[in-house]
């Protein structure tokens, strides 16, 4: 269970408050969606959960299964099972995708005191998954995300997510830039990962994604916190009516 309590976050060396008392609980096994106007702080929330520099937590707590996330380095959070599908995935020049991912997987395993995954097993898993996600095999040989199209980068995020099998997933606008076919492939992948011991937080601007990945709860992030919440139907209402009712 992810528990966020009274979270205050500021950027610009603490000068600019973005989140001002956000509280949210995502129980194991549930999928929650977060919607909200541009600039509300959705990506900020995703970065605070994953420990990016430059986002100062001035108050509040965040725990995952009782462990204090805010006290951990980004790589420790990853090893604890937190995965972020980035709104804008980074390019890693000179590092082949497979090398990158195998290093990441085994670093996580090592941190958890598990045995490394050997190359043949890793390759087998990666190949099968690439096929499932309809990715060109040569993409796995290229440096990670370098020269990939926007949609290819998003698909690569899902590929990494499914290889790493995290237990808490944050997806930041993974649907933006995907064509309908890719959206369906991505949604199928995400749905396969739904399980009683995995929580998900899906940030999106579009109801469309939520037709494929039906959320247990939908929240509006506005004015620095959760301004309203509802069930899956609530997303449709938001799409029709906009966020005016929740704006500052």
């Amino acid at each position: 269970m992810l528990k966020i309590n009274n979270l205050h976050v500021a950027v610009d060396d603490g000068q600019k408050p973005i989140l001002t008392g956000l509280s949210l609980e995502v129980p194991k096994g549930e999928v929650h969606a977060i919607m909200g106007p541009n600039g509300a702080g959705k990506s900020t929330l995703s970065y605070v959960l994953t420990g990016r520099d430059g986002y100062d937590v001035t108050d509040g707590t965040v725990t995952l299964d009782g462990k204090d996330l805010l006290d951990m380095e980004p790589e420790e959070r990853a090893a604890a099972g937190v995965f972020l599908s980035f709104q804008y995935p980074l390019e890693i020049p000179g590092v082949p995708t497979m090398t990158f991912l195998k290093t990441a997987l085994n670093a996580q395993r090592k941190a958890r005191g598990e045995e490394e995954m050997k190359a043949p097993e890793f390759l087998k898993k990666a190949r099968a998954l690439a096929k499932e996600l309809k990715m060109k095999p040569e993409m796995l040989k290229r440096p990670l995300n370098v020269g990939f199209s926007g949609g290819e980068k998003k698909r690569m995020e899902i590929f990494q997510m499914m290889m790493l099998e995290p237990n808490f997933i944050v997806m930041d606008e993974t649907d933006s830039g995907l064509d309908v076919d890719a959206l369906r492939i991505v949604a199928d992948g995400v749905n396969k990962l739904r399980s009683p011991d995995r929580g998900m937080l899906i940030i999106t601007h579009y109801q469309r994604l939520l037709d494929y990945i039906v959320p247990d709860r939908v929240h509006v992030l506005a004015k620095g916190g959760i301004a309203a919440s509802g069930d899956a139907e609530f997303a449709k209402k938001l799409e029709n009516e906009g966020y005016d009712a929740y704006a500052a």
Partner: peptide
């Protein structure tokens, strides 16, 4: 070294020192 790239690598579980080494090696090796 690109701080954003380093964060991305750490988010995937690669410790900071290793991420720095990987990016530096990739830069030089060419």
């Amino acid at each position: 070294l690109d701080e954003s790239a380093l964060f991305y690598m750490r988010q995937r579980g690669i410790p900071l020192a290793q991420a720095r080494a990987m990016l530096t090696e990739a830069f030089l090796a060419s």
